[in-house]
Design a protein around this nucleic acid. Sequence first.
DNA 1: TTGTAGGCGTTATCAT
DNA 2: ATGATAACGCCTACAA
Lengths: 332, 332
Amino acid sequence: VTIRDVACRAGVSPATVSRVLNNSDHPVRPQVRTRVEQAVRALGYVPNRLARSLLTRETAAIGLLVPDVSNPYYAMILRGIEDVASQAGRAVVLCNTDRQPDKQRVYLRTLLERRVDGLIVGGGTVTAEDLRPVQDRVPVVAIGRHPVPLPSVRVDNVAAGETAARHLLALGHRHIACLAGPLTSTTVRDRAAGVARALRAVGIALACRHVVATDFTAPGGYGATRRLMRHETRPTALIAFSDQVAIGALRALRDLNLAVPQQVSLVAFDDTPLAAFVSPSLTAVRVPMYTLGLRAAELLLALLAGQPAASVVLPTRLHVRESTGPATGPKE
Amino acid sequence: VTIRDVACRAGVSPATVSRVLNNSDHPVRPQVRTRVEQAVRALGYVPNRLARSLLTRETAAIGLLVPDVSNPYYAMILRGIEDVASQAGRAVVLCNTDRQPDKQRVYLRTLLERRVDGLIVGGGTVTAEDLRPVQDRVPVVAIGRHPVPLPSVRVDNVAAGETAARHLLALGHRHIACLAGPLTSTTVRDRAAGVARALRAVGIALACRHVVATDFTAPGGYGATRRLMRHETRPTALIAFSDQVAIGALRALRDLNLAVPQQVSLVAFDDTPLAAFVSPSLTAVRVPMYTLGLRAAELLLALLAGQPAASVVLPTRLHVRESTGPATGPKE
DNA sequence: TTGTAGGCGTTATCAT
DNA sequence: ATGATAACGCCTACAA
């Protein structure tokens, strides 16, 4: 059932139906308008956006490329994006890349074929080469720092890393290690750089083996912690690059009979709702994930509206809770 | 740049280009084929799926309606769906309904306008009326039990509820309460029904005030637990309807100086990766969320391929960990 | 083996 | 105020 059928039934032309449906500013006699509306209802007519898009060259769809939505970090970002997109009448097409270059390429390609109006990329792992065929066709907004120059919404992860490290340094910790995420992630690298910088500022070097790569999961954090704590010179403080990793670390430390924070302090990143509820509650650097998505979507919409792109850097803040404490002062 | 431009540059007709691009079984001279391929590359031609879809009446897109992707439960489901969809060359359009009827209606409508090939609904909150205009246009698969008859993929939540309750009964618990989710969710109602049934079987009634509604979050679980434990007759065991809720409960119990499992036992639902890592680790009924999404997508693809729809019921299993123990036998 | 032409469902332009 | 007509970019009979 097409617009012609409706036109037929209402005894008008397709053009008129179109005008009624789109609340066009073109004048339509009220009589006719209601006749059309009745016909629409009677026939259960649902306009075909494909046909419309073909003509208008707008799909009202945006693509989202992230490593993995089952990671709460990206799930929250996605929620922020979808909220503003839907409010603007736009649909979100989701793609999970798992940080795999070939997946990324394929997804980017199909998103272009689908003629999304714009897209948002996260994870910091899309290359300039992947993006070249995309960038001059549709606006692209990045979440997080990307190797490619792109309008972006991000937090200053270097500063955040420094904040985490300084907190521990202030508590007297000198042996600090990182439970990082995938080392291909710019976010991970920036946080590690921040930690390293804060340590260097007080004359401490962050040894390579004190930055343990893992994935952003609790099991990953668990394994990384156990591996790390095997070393003869155990760190007295850990910085986990996500809440999930921190929760895994917490369990590993418990299994190793290391009390948190009495023997080992732990700082987490992200600060999802869980951080405040686990025991001990996690001292964490809050990253405003929902807002990250929200602002990214807003930025993209602005670009689509022809407005200038102003990259955004959102603030992070350290929330001190139970998982950090003074370096074993009493004993040593 | 359209297919005509490519045709032009390659010195052939659009039809030939189309045949090359779609690997049509229609014969094309190898020479010509490579000429076309070169032209495609030279021009950076990206086919327009909208135009294609308009003609073929297939968009290779599927819609997904869930309450909230930032809930790990749905995030995992989404991941499962997206994995099989992308493998089948299909895109997933995500919609967050927040269980709000009007949002659902709007989304269903726009998904129809976009001519998705089919859709998957989760959350058990879509009504028959909402679905009527949809169902006879595109195949719909449900995740979880729905008030509407629909091919579905689900777990037996009644049985799962029974399992959880029986575990506690076997440990000697007689005062059992539920930290439920939104009572509009069929999943929640089924689990509660299962618990009630198991209790009834041993002559215990599940009082209304022992089923506390909340949302599926840690703060929600925290608040619900505190409210519940104010009662003079405290339950000795709690059943939380998600891991998040359970983690909130764990914190509330700690704040109330109630030891888990010594004074209060706790069973969780879902069993996300976190469950095994928090302390005490959670005895939980595992719900295979990823598989739920996977199978739902497979079911939808089967329907789209014209194959018959066979609803699926996935098994759940109780994983006993640290959060449950015998009812205060020694003391009472 | 290749090309031509018609149409998928809309909207925009130009008449009326 | 309404209608006819021509695209939008592609696929697919059918013709050559």
